[in-house]
Amino acid sequence: MTHAITVENVTFAYDDRPVLRDVSLAIEEGEFLGLIGPNGSGKTTLLKIMLGLQQPDSGRVELFGTPADAFTDGTRLGYVSQHSSDGESTMPISVREVVTMGRYAHAGISPLDDEDAAIVDDALEQVGIADLADRRMSRLSGGQKQRTYIARALASEADLLALDEPTVGVDTESRDAFYDLLEDLNQRGITIVLIEHDIGVVTEHVDTIACLNGELYEHCGTAEFLESDALERAFSSARAAGTASVASGD
């Protein structure tokens, strides 16, 4: 079995504040991984390092067998980040234009064609925002914005979807629909890495779980995970650390 992502002995610190210590993890192609852990445990940082958006201080990261910083095939990666984008509150840009960006890596400097348009329509439909297509991004609610970014990731037709708390601000009904969609995509062979603070949601949908708190506590199947005490250990050490530095943030 080939690996979508391999992380070996990765260590990372913001200035002198250590975030990740010697984390190793391998994610197989077609795996649906839930990445969980307390606030400030380095989940987002690890995800960005996996995607090559940040460089680890030491250790190796590979995407589909290539070192992450030398990986050039943007069409294989889709990402819904936790933070808002640079221009969403000020720029005039429509929902459709944002979702269309998912096709840019495929088109390069060539023009987009009808097939791209059809894929964008489909992505808008799948997350239920087709009626908002011409709306300006800055006029959307938080949940609608989030669904736009999810649609953009879907339109990118990536082999690997990385999702950082994608359903924050999304109502329960569309959240359930979204997770059903993820399971469906995963059935079709797409590798998914999901950060989600709602552990109930995670255990219900994912195949495997990695529990993180600075270092990796457990990476195993969901059923085994539920029987293990990894979560308890991760969170209790967070409580211990939390008394030392309360406002560590994400």
Binding site: L53, G74, Y104
Partner: peptide
């Protein structure tokens, strides 16, 4: 793409 969302553009390996 870069104007709107620099990080996503980097991810798309632009």
């Amino acid at each position: 793409f870069i104007t709107f969302d620099r990080e996503a553009a980097r991810l798309a390996r632009i």
